[in-house]
Nucleic acid binder design. Structure first.
Lengths: 177, 177
DNA sequence: TATTGTTATACTCTATAACTATA
DNA sequence: TATAGTTATAGAGTATAACAATA
């Protein structure tokens, strides 16, 4: 699957996946800013409502995990989203420690319309790709995202590091405080 | 979070590119943490040295722009990297306001060895893809990254927003200060 | 005057710890 | 005892503004 001219894909920018992903993500966030900044919490607030709509998680802790934020941050986010009338917190009858995050009609509507506009932003950011390439990229990224979200990152990190015997090093605690 | 059979790529996670990219990037950063945290500034410090090696920018301002950080942050980063003997700051003879960032031998060596280990991390994070799919993903992402880095993000944002006539809205300043 | 880089300050975001309530 | 959620505090990271040097 040769793409275009590009002498060597690995050498154009330095080859670090973190840098490449970061550059694309920054561009997307920057462009999407004006679309999501009417929602409390901005892009993250949108993702909370969006995830709640899809109903794949049913307490705040899992919601926070999926979005990669601390559970305390989720509290602040939900405070603002609830105050704006976009979501409600409902105690889980099965385990009253849990709070289920349920979008309101207003939240659902706003989320859907934001979703549509974000899709346009996406196509714009991915503008250097053809339609087919865009779909390929989205598909591959989604598969990777599903994979990494399904596994415990720390456990994975340990197994990955264990294979790295490039230089003799002490294992390191991997957490700093 | 059930991963099951993945009925529809676009619906599995909600479809937001920012979320997908964020999830993959978080997993990568988390896994790569123990590889880069011996470098001052962590992953960002590595990217500074790596970018300096490739020699595509020759002052601190452009370096900061490419990495998506403020120029003041770049000063702090370079202070630490220079103190660790990984880079040097050399005044540009042509314009003495500029400082060229030149990696030392030690910096180059550390960067190369880190680069090799990061590549293993990458393959691990992208482990759910085949070799060919990994190359496709890297190629597509690199093309998009090159594209967005070559254009002014703010200008792009304006043109993108201009096309969004989904709902009648005031144009919004799009910058907050 | 404009730009690069530096420094000092202020702000935002996030993490830490302690607390309540449920189990 | 252990977990979900909340709150208050402390810390890390970042931006803002003022400054010096150079053009």
């Amino acid at each position: 699957m040769q793409t275009t001219e590009q002498p060597d894909d690995g050498e154009v920018l330095g080859g670090d996946l973190g840098f490449i992903l970061g550059a694309v993500l920054r561009a997307y966030v920057k462009t999407a800013e004006s679309v999501v900044d009417q929602i409390p919490g901005g892009g993250r607030g949108y993702q909370v409502v969006s995830t709640a709509i899809h109903g794949t998680v049913d307490n705040q802790r899992d919601l926070a995990r999926r979005l990669g934020v601390d559970r305390t941050v989720m509290t602040y986010l939900l405070d603002d989203l609830e105050a704006a009338g976009l979501v409600t917190r409902q105690p889980d009858p099965a385990d009253r420690r849990n709070r289920q995050v349920v979008p309101t009609d207003k939240g659902s509507q706003l989320c859907r319309s934001t979703e549509r506009r974000l899709r346009l932003i996406e196509d714009h950011v991915l503008g250097s790709l053809s339609d087919a390439e865009r779909e390929t990229l989205r598909s591959l990224l989604t598969r990777v995202a599903c994979s990494v979200l399904a596994t415990d990152p720390m456990q994975d990190a340990c197994t990955a590091i264990a294979e790295l015997t490039d230089e003799p090093k002490k294992p390191r605690p991997a957490h700093k405080r």
